[in-house]
């Protein structure tokens, strides 16, 4: 069962620019799903279509098997969205805002749950303040609380941790992880790729309105992330044509301190670490130091979106 099934979703804005192009995506029920992409990739457009703030130009979406566009209200009751833009009502306190939002979603006031939300999002001390007295981080946490008042089965968070400090971010993610463990599907966008890699079990990457990849995080990291052998010679290495030929297959790159070789798998499934090391020693002699570094989600992301030829070049972050 999928929490969300998106088929051929597209959006062309009035001015004619295309924000989404034929995106198809499945978000498994109970997953912790990262939707990643550079600024302007179409993430927010997609979320706003799901939230009924933007109209799609084409495509179909089902939520828990129900058609999102023809059964809007059924779907809305099961979905909580944290918008990217901070929105607040200057007249009301966080507590009043939560009661009001719960009401909008047709829920009778459940004070215990509202108190818990305030507590978990560390707003209890500020529950009686006017919204305009809250700091940016507090307002953002209030948006998270608002998205959860009706205990949705799918929670969508659009950049929920922008402007939230490390400690609070950690606690927010702990809370999301708890909700996820309780069966809530969580779809999030974030620019903190290390957090996405740690938290999420599924990932999709979009760029310029197109879906580049969507798969379980583990599969992505196994199949797309590569490893690099880094050999330190304590001096800049410039690769000659002969070096290029001898090290072909390892995508060799010279650097300020030595050389980098890309590792792969040989036919029997073994890493090519040994061959790469020997080939390098044969060309340049034994290194002063060596290490293997596996690409993380950020490297993969930069490589796939084509925004990271530099970072990809060295293959090494020291």
């Amino acid at each position: 069962m999928y929490a969300l099934e998106i088929n051929g979703l597209g959006k062309v804005y009035e001015k004619g620019n295309r924000a989404l192009n034929d995106v198809s995506l499945r978000v498994p029920q109970g997953s912790f799903f990262a939707l990643l992409g550079p600024n302007g990739a179409g993430k927010s457009t997609m979320i706003n279509i799901l939230a009924d703030i933007v109209r799609p130009s084409e495509g179909r979406v089902t939520l828990l098997g129900h058609d999102l566009f023809s059964e809007r209200n059924w779907c809305k009751r099961r979905m909580g969205v944290v918008p990217q833009e901070i929105a607040f009502d200057p007249f009301f306190t966080p507590h009043e805002v939560l009661r009001f939002t719960a009401g909008l979603f047709g829920c009778r006031p459940d004070e215990a749950w509202l108190d818990e939300l305030l507590e978990r999002l560390e707003l209890t001390r500020h529950a009686g303040k006017k919204a305009r007295q809250l700091s940016g981080g507090m307002r953002r946490r209030l948006l998270v609380a608002q998205a959860l008042v009706h205990r949705p089965e799918l929670v969508i968070l659009d950049e929920p941790t922008a402007g939230v400090d490390v400690e609070l971010r950690r606690r927010l993610w702990d809370f999301m992880r708890e909700l996820n463990a309780g069966g809530t599907t969580i779809l999030l966008t974030t620019h903190y790729l290390d957090e996405a890699e740690e938290l999420c079990d599924h990932v999709a990457i979009i760029d310029r309105g197109q879906l580049l990849t969507a798969q379980p995080m583990r599969t992505l990291m196994r199949e797309i992330a590569s490893s690099w052998l880094w050999l330190n010679y304590g001096r800049p290495v410039t690769l000659t044509d002969e070096d290029q030929v001898a090290l072909a297959g390892f995508e060799p790159r010279g650097s300020e301190e030595g050389v980098c070789l890309k590792l792969g798998q040989s036919q029997d499934g073994q890493s090519t670490f040994h061959q790469a090391y020997q080939a390098a020693v044969a060309r340049f002699g034994p290194p002063m130091d060596a290490g293997v570094r596996r690409e993380d989600l950020e490297d993969v992301f930069l490589r796939l979106t084509g925004h990271g030829s530099q970072a990809q070049g060295s293959g090494v972050k020291s």
Binding site: A51, N73, I86, A87, P90, T101, L104, Q146
Partner: peptide, 18 residues
């Protein structure tokens, strides 16, 4: 207009209200 300027209006769009 206040809802629009402050961004609150999206809650009326996201809520299951006819």
């Amino acid at each position: 207009i206040m809802g629009k300027v402050m961004g609150m209006q999206i809650y009326l769009l996201m809520a299951p209200l006819s």
